[in-house]
């Protein structure tokens, strides 16, 4: 009897392994291995033609930590990502709440409205923002028409921020919607019955219970924003380097290209991300307790 059970268990295990193998293989080949290569490159150096020279060194990390311009790029990117995430949250929460509280037959169409922009390539949509914000663009035409006059709307960090918020907002709204949709609103009535004000009820009942959505949305917004380089190039005028621009240039444009230094910057970016997200998780789950 016991032997039969053992056999069954072994068979299950083999079946499980078989099922897992393709996924694991994929992860190892296309995630773990490239990551290892990046980490190895980050300790190497390059030659005059931009090829990686296998000569272990800490120079890349020393360069990053001793030259303010690299540190600046980290600060600029982190600050912009935090700002983007917070604004997306402030805009996204009421929006998700509105959709979740809409009559049943409206919810799907409203969600579709959030998703429809995805049918167009992100790059094309950012070019559309160029047309809107340009000196001779739509918005300036309107401003001039109503007598305010033309303003300098594009090619600054504000325009970059607008583009980022625009691009990332859906990634905040969708998880928030999923969390709010699951929330039982009779709890709010119960809180009111027990004398809580609406603000108190929101802060102590609804917000904690929809926290998983807040966390998921924030992470989904924060991570891609930290590495972005297209928006700052097309809407920001490529005038200041964000982390993504710097890494992209080191990998593709520099003369000679410098994959080791670029790799070191990418590795540090991943470490920064990991630390920030861990801190964020800890802070938000404690709030939940």
């Amino acid at each position: 009897m016991a032997m039969l059970q053992q056999q069954q268990q072994r068979r299950d295990r083999i079946r499980l392994m078989l099922l897992l193998t393709p996924g694991l293989l994929w992860l190892v080949l296309f995630f773990a291995l490239p990551l290892v290569i990046i980490v190895i490159y980050s300790f190497m150096t390059n030659d005059a033609l931009g090829r990686v020279v296998y000569q272990p060194t800490l120079d890349n990390y020393i360069t990053i930590f001793t030259q303010s311009l690299y540190i600046n790029a980290y600060w600029r990117s982190i600050w912009t990502s935090v700002l983007t995430t917070v604004i997306c949250l402030l805009l996204g929460y009421p929006l998700a709440l509105f959709i979740a509280r809409s009559p049943q037959q409206w919810r799907m169409p409203l969600l579709m409205l959030i998703l429809i922009p995805f049918w167009t390539n992100f790059l094309v949509r950012i070019y559309a923002w160029q047309i809107i914000l340009a000196n001779n663009g739509l918005l300036n035409g309107l401003l001039e028409f109503i007598g305010i006059g033309r303003l300098s709307l594009i090619n600054n960090e504000g325009a970059t921020l607008i583009g980022l918020i625009y691009g990332e907002l859906p990634f905040m709204v969708l998880p928030l919607y999923a969390a709010i949709d699951r929330f039982d609103f009779t709890l709010m009535e119960a809180a009111a019955d027990l004398g809580a004000s609406r603000v108190q009820a929101f802060l102590r009942i609804m917000l904690p219970m929809t926290m998983p959505g807040v966390v998921a949305g924030s992470v989904l917004v924060f991570i891609p924003t930290l590495g972005q380089f297209v928006v700052s190039e097309l809407l920001g005028g490529a005038k200041v380097d964000y982390l993504g621009n710097l890494i992209q240039r080191l990998f593709l444009r520099a003369n000679p290209i410098n994959w080791p230094l670029g790799s070191a910057m990418a590795v540090l970016m991943m470490i920064v991300l990991l630390v920030l997200i861990m801190l964020y998780f800890r802070a938000t789950t404690e709030e939940e307790r």
Binding site: V240, D241, L246
Partner: peptide, 16 residues
Amino acid sequence: EGTTAFDDLWTEIKSR
């Protein structure tokens, strides 16, 4: 070899 100085300069221009 010497013209890598232009990349350093360019990175500095773009860092502020």
